[in-house]
């Protein structure tokens, strides 16, 4: 290529950049966790269309996925996310506390505790339910092997643990010691502790280990869809936890990027009927009553308790159960 040609090419590109587009080109980075991959792929397109129609601006959204805790750490360490959409409020709390990028009162900024879609914890069993598992107490029977990831490494698995604890607490009328015994017995039936939820699903479905997988409802629905209803089926327990994957603006980053307005709209639009419909299609329970009504066969109604009600919020739950030396660690202390 001759230098003059190259020069004119560069000039042309520069000229285009300066005059060609009237509308703004905005890019957003959404740092999310693993199982939302399909949902956000579709939602990003939906939102881009909505934003174009509303303002005329083009918005390109990149969404990064990974383990929830790992993603939270990446943002703390400087990944310039505009919004975070993670598996549990604790990971966003940690962000607020460690980095100060997010104000600590972030949860009250959006409706429904900043959790636009929810899920719950259910069981996945092998076709025909050979071990006859119907509720949490069936998981404690001898000879039943339970697959669940390590709550120390998997944010998702913390919901599994808390759901079991909440059930035991309800059964015993609030007896903490009974709940502790229940959870200890439950984890004694766990032969493999994978580091993440997808790993556990693989161990259960593909490696053929265990009789029951404790899973998020959206993951269980995905597994049934993927592996076919002739291999696995879903069992809904009598009571479970309301899993609230939370979303937040990363204030300092959007202010630095000048993207606050569009990032706020990106999160608010998650509550719109269109987005709620999309969430339901991707196996998350919608918040909007009119959409829930349409999907009531897919998401059976069951009594759900929240982390705030039973555990006094994520900070308290984390400190008591999952931190170093917490109740979960004590289950595996030798000689107990």
């Amino acid at each position: 290529m001759r230098p003059r040609f190259l020069l004119s090419l560069i000039a042309a590109v520069l000229l285009c950049g300066a005059t060609g587009t009237q509308a703004k080109d905005i890019s957003l980075l959404n740092v999310s966790y693993d199982p939302t991959r399909e949902f956000y792929k579709q939602y990003d397109e939906l939102f881009a269309k909505y934003w174009k129609a509303k303002t005329g601006d083009d918005v390109t959204i990149s969404t990064s996925h990974g383990g929830s805790g790992k993603q939270a750490r990446a943002v703390i360490e400087g990944l310039e996310a505009d919004v975070v959409t993670l598996a549990l409020a604790y990971d966003i709390d940690a962000n607020a506390k460690q980095s100060g990028l997010i104000p600590s009162a972030w949860r009250s900024r959006l409706p429904d505790n900043s959790a636009p879609y929810t899920s719950t914890i259910v069981f996945l069993v092998r076709k025909g339910n050979p071990k006859n598992i119907h509720d949490w107490n069936d998981l404690l029977r001898t000879g039943v092997q339970v697959i669940t990831p390590n709550p120390k490494t998997s944010g998702g698995a913390r919901w599994n643990y808390l759901a079991a604890w909440g059930y035991a607490l309800k059964q015993s009328g609030g007896d903490e010691n009974k709940a502790r015994g229940f959870v200890t017995d439950l984890y004694r039936n766990v032969p493999v502790l994978d580091t993440g939820a997808r790993g556990s699903t693989t161990t259960f479905v593909q490696r053929g280990i265990g009789d029951v997988l404790i899973a998020w409802e959206n993951e269980a629905l995905l597994a049934v869809q993927q592996f076919g209803s002739d291999t696995v089926e879903i069992i809904v327990p009598s009571v479970s936890i309301l899993a609230e994957p939370s979303v937040s603006l990363v204030d300092q980053n959007v202010d630095a990027h000048g993207t606050r307005e569009v990032a706020e709209a990106y999160l608010q639009y998650l509550y719109s009927p269109e987005a709620q419909e999309l969430a339901a299609k991707n196996h998350y329970r919608p918040r909007l009553a009119q959409v829930t009504e349409r999907y009531k066969d897919k998401f059976p109604a069951l009594p759900l308790f929240t982390v705030d009600e039973v555990f006094g919020g994520w900070q308290a739950a984390q400190a008591k159960h999952f931190n170093d030396g917490g109740i979960f660690d004590q289950i595996y202390r030798p000689g107990q």
Binding site: V192, L193, P334
Partner: peptide, 25 residues
């Protein structure tokens, strides 16, 4: 990590403990 089973005190490797600590920030 995929073949170990990761049971504490039995098949839990040191790098996994590091990851666990990081998960706790």
């Amino acid at each position: 990590i995929f073949i170990a089973g990761n049971m504490p005190m039995f098949s839990e490797i040191a790098p996994l403990l590091i990851v666990i600590k990081l998960e706790e920030f």
